[in-house]
């Protein structure tokens, strides 16, 4: 494995897991991400919030190349994200993602959903992959559903399976894109509890979410985005109690107002 060179020019040291520099992205004419600079350390928990359409999903989807940025540099886990398929594959192996709509594979059982990537991507032997899968299913508290199919589970259970599926690749970084916003209120808590546990175990996480209680509880840093830019970032206490920009104040008053 050729290790990508870690020159000072990249400003990536061992502690940094994500570094985005002057990243810009367009959808056709529309400028979605504008001059994004962001650096995330290992073990850091980041919550990204902002109004709908502000580019939060696009931002984190750029980190594992579900979207392609057109300008600027992104380094993940010391690897540059460019058109090189090898780099992309290597990054995707280290980055887990949880989607709003779970995106479980409906034709595979829960266990198979979790074993698939370790077997095919990491080339883990079957028996070991099964062990890993059961370990993480136990951790998200649904080992007894292993032989069922995604369609037979509740939304909250499906989302926990999705988390376990991502964890089975033993990633260095987890991305969450509004993991609770497709769920009924009674199921939100079980998913948030799982995420809190994960955070307490020291997982590096970037979460797009509007669950402000979760942000206060686990985030090291809250990032507020509007119109494709990072408008404000701060520690949760300062962010919620003493927002600097007017746009943040307006957003917070809307989201916490009711």
């Amino acid at each position: 494995m050729a290790q990508p060179q870690n020159t000072a020019e990249q400003s990536v040291d061992q502690k940094t897991i994500v570094s985005m520099r002057n990243v810009n992205k367009w959808f056709g004419q529309f400028h979605v991400l504008r001059d994004i600079n962001l650096s995330v350390d290992k073990g850091e928990r980041i919550v990204v919030c902002g109004p709908s359409g502000s580019g939060k999903s696009t931002l984190i989807r750029c980190l594992n190349r579900l979207e392609k940025h057109q300008d600027g540099d992104i380094f993940v886990h010391g690897i540059e994200l460019n058109n090189d398929v090898k780099n992309i594959d290597e990054i995707r192996r280290e980055v887990g993602m949880v989607f709003q709509h779970f995106n479980l594979f409906p034709h595979l059982s829960i266990l198979e959903n979790c074993m698939l990537a370790p077997i095919w991507v990491r080339k883990t032997p079957r028996a070991e992959a099964e062990e890993i899968a059961m370990h993480f299913l136990t951790r998200v508290k649904i080992p007894e559903q292993a032989s069922k199919y995604p369609g037979q589970l509740s939304g909250g259970q499906q989302q926990r399976v999705a988390i376990a599926r991502a964890l089975c690749m033993q990633p260095q970084l987890m991305l969450f894109d509004e993991p609770t916003s497709a769920l009924d209120p009674e199921m939100i808590k079980e998913v948030l509890d799982t995420m809190v546990e994960l955070a307490d175990d020291g997982m590096t996480m970037i979460c797009v979410t509007h669950e402000m209680g979760f942000a206060r509880r686990v985030a090291d840093r809250v990032i507020f985005m509007d119109e494709g830019q990072i408008v404000e970032q701060n520690e949760p206490e300062a962010f919620f109690n003493n927002p600097k920009s007017d746009r943040t104040k307006l957003f917070l008053s809307q989201i916490l107002g009711h």
């Binding site: 594992n64 190349r65 579900l66 594959d89 995707r92 192996r93 980055v95 887990g96 993602m97 989607f99 709509h101 779970f102 995106n103 479980l104 594979f105 698939l116 990537a117 095919w120 991507v121 599926r165 991502a166 690749m169």
Partner: peptide
């Protein structure tokens, strides 16, 4: 979402098509 789910766990193009 199925394509994205397969991409996100690191499956290659042919793997995600086949599996």
């Amino acid at each position: 979402g199925q394509y994205e789910g397969a991409d996100a766990v690191g499956l290659s193009y042919w793997q995600s098509m086949r599996l």
